[in-house]
């Protein structure tokens, strides 16, 4: 496993515990060592506020009860306009994709996804971060 993702510090925002755990496992398989979790948008914002500049990527579910992924992204952009944001979505209609892109996500990935698809998205994010 290459160490290309070794510098990533990722916050997973997902309301379902099993999905969070699976994402963590996939990221670990890809060589990401620093993974943090938040069960909803509010806790995610608390985490970002308390550990500002600590994480360098958020992976967030689109559909969550309470604060949705898009709402979290809007709030995040008021405090950090550039923190990379990977949106995980179960929806794949063109309107949702356009909405995700226009709301300022760095990349999006559709459920269900394979480790390779996740790797491709992480590479795109790294490419954009470097650019």
């Amino acid at each position: 496993m290459s160490d290309q993702f070794a510098d990533l510090k990722i916050l997973i925002v997902e309301d379902q515990g099993e999905a969070r755990a699976m994402m963590r496992n996939m990221l670990t398989e890809l060589g990401v060592t620093q993974v943090f979790e938040a069960p909803d948008g509010r806790e995610a914002m608390n985490f970002i506020d308390s550990a500002f500049d600590f994480i360098n990527l958020i992976i967030c579910d689109w559909n969550m009860p309470g604060m949705s992924g898009v709402e979290l992204l809007r709030q995040l952009r008021t405090v950090d306009p550039s923190l990379p944001f990977l949106m995980v979505t179960g929806r794949s209609d063109m309107e949702s994709v356009v909405e995700a892109k226009s709301s300022g996500v760095t990349a999006y990935i559709r459920k269900p996804f394979s480790p390779k698809q996740l790797e491709a998205k992480l590479r795109i994010i790294l490419y954009k971060m470097a650019a």
């Binding site: 699976m22 496992n25 996939m26 398989e29 179960g90 459920k111 269900p112 480790p115």
Partner: peptide, 21 residues
């Protein structure tokens, strides 16, 4: 329903792939 079902399926699918690796 599809969305919730998809979430469950994603977890099964994800772990299957990880286990295959």
């Amino acid at each position: 329903v599809a969305h919730d079902f998809n979430n469950v399926l994603s977890i099964i699918d994800g772990y299957t792939r990880l286990t295959m690796v």
